[in-house]
């Protein structure tokens, strides 16, 4: 399999996945990583070096807000990320684009499969 292409797919999708996870409820960095490892094993083991820069970028773009809070688990201070209004709008737009994109790719894959069969 073309590793570079797969890496690009994962990177592109990760931004959208992170927005989805934060849209569910506010989360802190490690929680996001753990959830990615649990729910999206196809992405491979989530790395802090990949996830944190995306979080910073989304925060700088005004899509995420953050606050310092206490973890209910052990009382430690954590930085919780939540979606801003702009973030919600961006997520809706990205989701709509993704659906169209996925349908388009699937269409091409079906065509290629039909050609191979025929």
């Amino acid at each position: 399999m073309e590793e570079n292409t797969v890496r690009q797919f994962k990177k592109g999708g990760l931004e959208l996945i992170l927005l989805c996870l934060i849209a569910e409820k506010e989360r802190y960095g490690y929680e996001l990583l753990a959830e990615l490892d649990r729910a999206a094993p196809v992405l491979g083991f989530a790395r802090e070096g990949t996830v944190y820069p995306i979080l910073y970028r989304l925060q700088n773009a005004g899509l995420l807000a953050c606050r310092m809070g206490t973890s209910p688990r052990n009382g430690g201070t954590k930085k919780y990320y939540s979606l801003t209004e702009k973030g919600r709008t961006a997520l809706t737009e990205l989701a709509s684009f993704w659906n169209g994109y996925a349908a388009c790719v699937e269409g091409f894959l079906r065509r290629a499969a039909l050609k191979e069969e025929g």
Binding site: G29, Y30, G76
Partner: peptide
């Protein structure tokens, strides 16, 4: 915070550090 969280969750700090690249 990320390193502290990794340790809190029973991870090795060195392993967590390696994931930062």
């Amino acid at each position: 915070e990320a390193l502290r969280s990794a340790v809190e969750n029973g991870e090795d700090e060195a392993a967590a550090l390696a994931r930062f690249g």
